[in-house]
């Protein structure tokens, strides 16, 4: 009887350690963008004493952390807080990213290797420096990115050498609004 009590405690302790480890890996490496909780910045802050968690976040996905002079933002919800879905059409709009190079990608959640993307050279920016990209599985006029055939979709914005290294917040990042769903 005493042995089974001990074994139960031991298994519970190991399970708790394993589960909290997995949760920490999922949460680490991402921080909410100030004033815009819809975008998350994925990064490793080398000064962070818990940077090992953030590095583990990327390594657990079989990926390297973003380089220091690049910024990676991601989101899986629209402006209304609803999950991004492959059968819906969305409009990514805002001021043109202020960086030496940038790229927008869409991919099934958890499968960035299957991402389709567009970048600073492909996208036409309007005269007032506005960015408008339609994300849809149907071809759209203007800047268009094909939505993957997936229930849950992730959108990423990579800024390489942003002109303002402290560029963060809703004023700098585009919004993603749902147009319609089929």
């Amino acid at each position: 009887m005493r042995l089974s009590f001990g074994a139960t405690f031991l298994v519970a302790g190991i399970a708790a350690g394993y589960i909290t480890g997995l949760q920490a890996l999922v949460r680490a490496g991402t921080v909410a963008v100030p004033d815009n909780s819809k975008w998350q910045q994925e990064l490793v802050n080398p000064k962070d004493p818990y940077a090992i968690y953030a590095v583990g976040h990327f390594k657990a996905q079989g990926a390297l952390p973003p380089p220091h002079d690049s910024q990676l933002f991601s989101r899986d919800i629209d402006e209304d807080g609803k999950s991004l879905r492959g059968e819906c059409t969305y409009l990514l709009s805002g001021t043109a990213p202020a960086a030496r190079w940038w790229a927008v990608s869409v991919a099934p959640a958890g499968a960035m290797a299957d991402a389709v993307s567009t970048n600073a050279a492909d996208v036409i920016i309007t005269g007032d420096e506005r960015l408008n990209i339609t994300l849809s599985h149907r071809t759209a006029a203007g800047n268009w990115l094909a939505m993957p055939d997936a229930a849950n979709v992730k959108v990423t914005l990579a800024l390489h050498e942003p002109y303002d290294q402290n560029i963060k917040g809703s004023a700098s990042l585009p919004v993603l609004t749902k147009v319609n769903c089929e």
Binding site: A63, L64, P66, A103, A113, S117, N119
Partner: peptide, 11 residues
């Protein structure tokens, strides 16, 4: 793209 998350298949 899956290995270096800031890169794309076009790079």
């Amino acid at each position: 793209a899956g290995f270096l998350p800031t890169s794309t298949a076009e790079d």
